[in-house]
Design a protein around this nucleic acid. Structure first.
Lengths: 302, 302
DNA sequence: TGGGCTCATGAGGGAGCCTCATGACGTGGG
DNA sequence: CCCACGTCATGAGGCTCCCTCATGAGCCCA
C-alpha cells in the first residue's frame, strides 16, 4: 500500500474544507472517494489522521503529516506549472542571423545542442556579413543573431531586451600550410609572418587583423582579398600565402593546413542575443538561457 | 492523464543514475516500467524531458521540472518519516498521577482531548494526594503527573527531562450556597466570610487557603476538616458553612451552590510534566506537546 | 421518533502500473 | 564489413488501485 497523490490531496482538502463532503465537492470527486482515500492513507501511515467530528479536527499524527503533504502537493503543482510555462515560451520558430564563419564553425554544434535541449524550437538560419546580421536584427528581419564584439551591456535601448549569452571568446590564429617552416611551432609572432603574403579573411575580420598588426607594431599590407572562406583555404593550400583566422573556423580547416597560436594575443567575443530596440521573443530568451549555463568560452559546445 | 509519484520517481532516478536501465535497478523495477513512466510523464507535460543518449541528458523542460520533482518526492518521504517517527513515540501506556480535584474537574476534558489527538495512547489514571502524586512520579510508579505549583523551571536534575505544560492558572473561589447573602455578588472578600464557618477543602489546598488569609490579614480558623470533596459539597449544601475551592472544581459544583470570585486574588498553577530525575517517556513528551499548543490557562480544555 | 446530515463500507467497472517478450538503434571490436 | 552488445521503445496481458453507485450506521435536532 504505497502513498500516492490523491490520498494527500484528499487529506489536505478535508482539513481545509472542514469535512469530507465539502472536500469531495472541492476536488470534484464523490464523498466516497475522499473517504476511501483518507482511510487508505491512515492504513499506510498506521494511525488515524483525522477526528471525525463537525468540523473535523486533526490528530497529532495528522498535524505532523499535514505540512509535508502540503509541500508535496505544492511541488507537484509547481512541476506542471513549470512545464506549462516552459512549453508556452519555448516553442515556435526563431530566425537566427550569423556570419559565415560562425555558421560553418560554431553553429553546427549549437544547433545540435538546441535540438536536444529545446526540441520544440525550430531555428531558421540566415547567413550574412556582420553588417547584414546586425541590420536584420534591427529591422526585425531576424529574431536573434550571433554578433561580434557588441558594446558590453550598454546601448540596450529597450529595458525588456535582456542580456545576451557569451558563446565564445574567439582568439585569432595563424593559418599555415602543414609544410610551412613555422607550422610546427607552439606560437608564432605576427612579425614572423611579415615575409609571407597575407591573404585577408572574408567578412568582418579585417578590423581585428589590423588591430593585431597595430599591437605588434607591424605594417598591415594584405596581399590578397577574397570573399569566400573556401577560396582562402584553397589559396593557403596552394602555398600562395598565409592567413589569420578565428578559432571557430577550426572545424573547416583541412588536414594539410594547421592553425597556430599567434602573438600578440587578440580575440573577439561572439555573443548570442536578441534585438536591442524591442522586446525579445520568449523563444530567444530560452535559446540564450540554454547556452548561458554552459561553461563560458566553450567554443567546443557539445 | 494525471501526474503521479512513480513518474516523478522514475524521472529523478534516470537523471541520477544516468540511464533507464540502472535507474530501474535502483528503483527495483523493470527497465520497461521506467521507460513507460518517463514516456507518460512526457505526454502529460507535453514535451520531451530527457535526451536519450549515453549518459542521458535533460532537455530544458526536464531541467525546469526536475528540481520541483525532487522537492515533491522529498516531501512525500517526509510524510512517511513523520508518521513513522510519530507512531514510534506516541503509543504505549502512560501512568498519569493527579489529585482528586484535578481528576474530577480537569482530567475528563483532557482525556477526551488526548483520546482524539493521540488515540494510540492508553492512559491509566492514578488518583492520590499532592504528596503521593509527586512521590509516585519520583519513584517511577507513575510516568507523568499533574503537579501543583512546581518550582518554576528549576530543580530539574536530569537535563533530558524537558519542560512541562501549564494546563491552567487555577484561581481560588468562594463556594457558597445559592441562598447565601453574598451569592449574588461579583466578588467577595475573605473578610466578608469571617462570620461563616469555613469548611476546609481536602488534599493540598490548605496551604493556599492559609496564604489567602495571610494576604487578607485575616485570621485562619477552619471550622471543619473533611477529606472527600463530596462531603464538603454536601455540608455547604446543608448550610453548615462555606468553602474556598479552586476553579477546576467548577464542573462538580451542583446547581444550588455558586462559585464567586474572591479577593485577594490567589491562584495555583497546574502543570503536566514527567519525572524530574530521569528521562521522560516519548509518549509523555507527546502528551505534553499536544496540550502545550492549546491556549494557555485553558481550564476549559475541549 | 423521524428526518436530515455526515461519514463508512461493499460491489463493480475501468484505468493505471508493472512485467515479459521482442524490436529498433547506435557503438565498438574482430 | 559485420556481428555482438548495450540501451531504450513498444505491445500484450495481468493485477492492483482508484473511482462511483448504492446502502448502512451514527448523530443532532425538531
Amino acid at each position: 500500500m504505497a502513498l500516492n497523490l490523491p490520498q494527500l490531496r484528499a487529506l489536505v482538502a478535508v482539513v481545509d474544507a472542514g469535512g469530507f463532503g465539502s472536500a469531495a465537492a472541492d476536488l470534484g470527486l464523490s464523498q466516497s472517494a475522499v473517504s476511501h482515500a483518507v482511510a487508505s492513507l491512515e492504513r499506510t501511515l498506521a494511525g488515524p489522521l483525522l477526528v471525525r467530528s463537525t468540523p473535523v479536527r486533526t490528530t497529532a499524527l495528522g498535524d505532523a503529516v499535514l505540512s509535508h503533504a502540503r509541500t508535496a502537493l505544492a511541488a507537484t503543482d509547481a512541476v506542471v506549472d513549470a512545464a506549462a510555462r516552459h512549453t508556452a515560451t519555448a516553442d515556435g520558430t526563431v530566425r537566427l542571423a550569423a556570419t559565415p564563419t560562425v555558421c560553418q564553425g560554431l553553429l553546427p554544434s549549437l544547433l545540435r545542442h538546441w535540438s536536444e535541449r529545446l526540441p520544440a524550437l525550430r531555428i531558421r538560419v540566415f547567413e550574412g556579413s556582420g553588417e547584414e546580421t546586425e541590420a536584420w536584427l534591427a529591422s526585425a528581419a531576424a529574431d536573434a543573431a550571433i554578433v561580434v564584439d557588441p558594446p558590453p551591456a550598454a546601448g540596450r535601448e529597450d529595458p525588456r531586451a535582456g542580456s545576451g549569452a557569451l558563446l565564445a571568446t574567439d582568439p585569432f590564429l595563424a593559418l599555415l600550410p602543414q609544410d610551412h617552416p613555422l607550422a610546427g611551432e607552439e606560437t608564432v609572432h605576427v612579425a614572423d609572418l611579415a615575409d609571407d603574403p597575407l591573404i585577408l579573411s572574408p567578412n568582418g575580420c579585417e578590423r581585428h587583423i589590423r588591430t593585431l598588426h597595430q599591437l605588434a607594431g607591424e605594417e598591415y599590407t594584405p596581399a590578397h582579398r577574397v570573399r569566400d572562406l573556401g577560396t582562402l583555404i584553397s589559396m593557403v593550400q596552394a602555398g600562395l600565402g598565409v592567413a589569420i583566422q578565428p578559432e571557430v573556423s577550426r572545424p573547416l580547416v583541412p588536414d594539410d593546413l594547421v592553425l597556430v597560436r599567434i602573438t600578440p594575443h587578440h580575440s573577439r567575443r561572439l555573443v548570442l542575443c536578441g534585438p536591442q530596440n524591442r522586446p525579445w521573443q520568449p523563444a530567444v530568451r530560452a535559446l540564450v538561457d540554454s547556452v548561458a549555463q554552459l561553461p563560458t568560452g566553450a567554443s567546443g559546445v557539445v
